[in-house]
Amino acid sequence: MNFSFLYLMGVAGVGIFIFIALSVLILVWLERKVAGHIQSRMGPMRVGWHGLVQTLADMVKLISKESILPAKADKWLFFLAPFVVFIPAYLSYMVIPFAPKLIIRDFNIGLLYFLAIPSISVVGIIMAGWGSNNKYALLGGLRSAAQIISYEIPRALSVVGVVMLAGSMSTVTIVKSQSSIWFILLQPLGFLIYFISTLAEVNRIPFDLPEAESELVAGFHTEYSGIKWSIFMMSEYANVFAGCALCVVLFLGGWHGFLIPKGEPWSSVVSLIWFMVKTLILIFLMMWLRWTLPRFRVDQLMDLSWKVFLPLALINIGLTGLFILGALKLFS
């Protein structure tokens, strides 16, 4: 085993953690601001410039809070669940190419890895639901398991079209093959299915059933408080960012954009800015949807996944195949 490789990975791991922590701080602030302005109020204003450090203050409060263990709760499941939810979210950052060469590991099955890893978090959610000895939490956990497993299928199928066009599952290759045309233009249907399934995967309105506050109080994290709750919160926003980032990688040309200088030392930085701006636009879209739409019911959610998105994703694969065949015939 190469020692410098391990060293590099360690640095990358810490780097990702800091990045997630920072992005969560900013995203929570952004969410509250977006919600505030949509609802014709200001959102946080007191702590820092336009409440910018409000989340930091909240974080301090959460860390200093007492961590409550409910009576008759399963102690081990209850303590481990937040980490089982957080670690997959953390690991999925491994394969996101932020800019040319700014990627931790470029697997040749990077996309598959990204789609597979979040499934582990289902285990954590069920652990949280079962471990807290609360009926609302249990129902939330079970709903969440059903939802995430159902939406994984259309989500995975919707990216098959992209894989066919790019001819690779490596995230870097996918971005590189979009240098002339973004895949959203060739795969509009795939983009829609992927984006909506991502909404469901990261439990956001209109699919936030696992934590539907009006019916299940807070779903699987009803009994959580303090730092353990904030780990759930962190993994949720980490998932939101990762989901949107992958959407940018797959459909919106990744780091490509206009006005990127060639071969200059700062061209990577400009690419990174492009990537971040695109991701933020998608995140803003998610927030916009969240504060506008009501939520689906659990059976309607399943119907939507199995009866609408799954057939559409299959049709999309067929159409992509025909398109590639036609293009090959035309240009050969």
Binding site: A35, I38, Q39, S40, R41, I205, P206, D208, A212, S214, W291, T292, L293, P294, R295
Partner: peptide, 16 residues
């Protein structure tokens, strides 16, 4: 009614 269905913004508009 909107809040129960998950639409929070309508609720705040109505209160405004």
């Amino acid at each position: 009614g909107g809040l129960d269905a998950g639409a929070m913004t309508v609720f705040l508009y109505c209160f405004r």
